[in-house]
Design a protein around this nucleic acid. Structure first.
Lengths: 191, 191
DNA sequence: TGCCTTTGTCAACGACTGTTGGCAAATAGT
DNA sequence: ACTATTTGCCAACAGTCGTTGACAAAGGCA
């Protein structure tokens, strides 16, 4: 084993440095184009340490690409402001520090990595779907969650991954207004 | 030079076989995970031929990843059916033969390939933006095109790249209805 | 002090990548 | 039929990838 009994070891700093570098590079370049040597360079240690600490590149990716969307309880927010609430929640998380909670990391790699795509699907099934089940007829929850996914992931893709100029240029408030109205309609099932 | 004067050469069949295999593999696995050896295997020839015919892997990709969206003239369609028209146009193109006109190819690779992302931005600026300029106030065209991009690319991503189950399960008519209403609002600027 | 586990570097492995040059077979032109 | 060009395969290159094992410094504990 590589792990001692306690967690007060001096090596925890290295461990965190590796995780931090991995998060940054995976988010910027995706899984395939991020090399363990580059992660090691940013973390300031040797590439072989990464294997010893985490077992493999895949294991390290699986560890840092576990997004927790931290969705609010939609049963407690104003029925008419579900869309606005959701969009603001996502944007503020993405705009915030440390890679926006891991979802951009997954999104970067999901297009060319089947495991990442599968994990993204699980995230939506496990977090978005149950949250939306409380915001309308549970029988149509999967349908509504799918529509929400097309718009939320499309927003994340164009603004943070592709960086399409007109989408990047828009203010948070405008996005909350325009996209929020769409999510409101998709999420609740209202016409 | 590798190209003779006329185009009646027997080698044109090989050229087309390479392009076809490249389109298929780039669309399925993206630029990074598609190897020239695999393209050659599918095309039934040697890998070195690809370099001789197209110069490099990048050049081949640039050639097959040139989507022409073939957007209809929005100035001639019913003002209230712009969203429906656009969504149906895109879906039918994607659902159709030969990789849906190249946009999925680009989308697969754009997440981890800067050139592909840049080209995708150009496509939208050169094709979607002018088409939408005729469907509302030209001053807000960029803004509206950006919003349309978030929804259209999000739909393509979730249905054809990530293959999220609830999105895949939806019928074309339902997508035209639900997503079409969003595009209608984004594209025309109406509330 | 001496010992043993941990932290780290270094060099190398086998597998893979895009790409190149040489040479056989097929084909076109005359 | 003879020749020159083109089409194709093969072997190999230089580079990079993830991963492994050996071995040197460092630190805790007796």
């Amino acid at each position: 084993m590589t792990k001692p009994k306690g967690s007060t070891a001096k090596s925890d700093r290295t461990r965190l440095a590796i995780e931090s570098a991995a998060r940054e590079l995976f988010a910027s370049y995706g899984f395939e184009r991020t090399t363990v040597r580059e992660i090691a360079r940013v973390a300031g240690i040797d590439a072989s340490m990464i294997i010893r600490y985490f077992g493999s590149k895949d294991a390290l990716f699986a560890l840092v690409a576990m997004p927790d969307l931290r969705l609010p309880d939609l049963g407690e927010v104003d029925r008419g402001k579900i869309g606005e609430t959701l969009v603001r929640h996502f944007i503020e998380q993405w705009e915030g520090s440390e890679g926006g909670g891991g979802l951009p990391i997954l999104l970067r790699s999901a297009s060319s990595n089947d495991d990442a795509a599968k994990k993204l699907a699980e995230i939506f099934a496990a977090q978005v779907l149950p949250a939306l089940a409380r915001a309308g007829d549970p029988a149509t929850a999967a349908n509504r969650a799918g529509l929400v996914a097309t718009q939320i992931l499309g927003l994340a893709l164009t603004r943070y991954v592709l960086k399409l100029p007109p989408v990047v240029a828009m203010s948070i408030e405008q996005l909350v207004d325009d996209v929020g109205a769409t999510i409101q309609r998709y999420g609740t099932g209202e016409r």
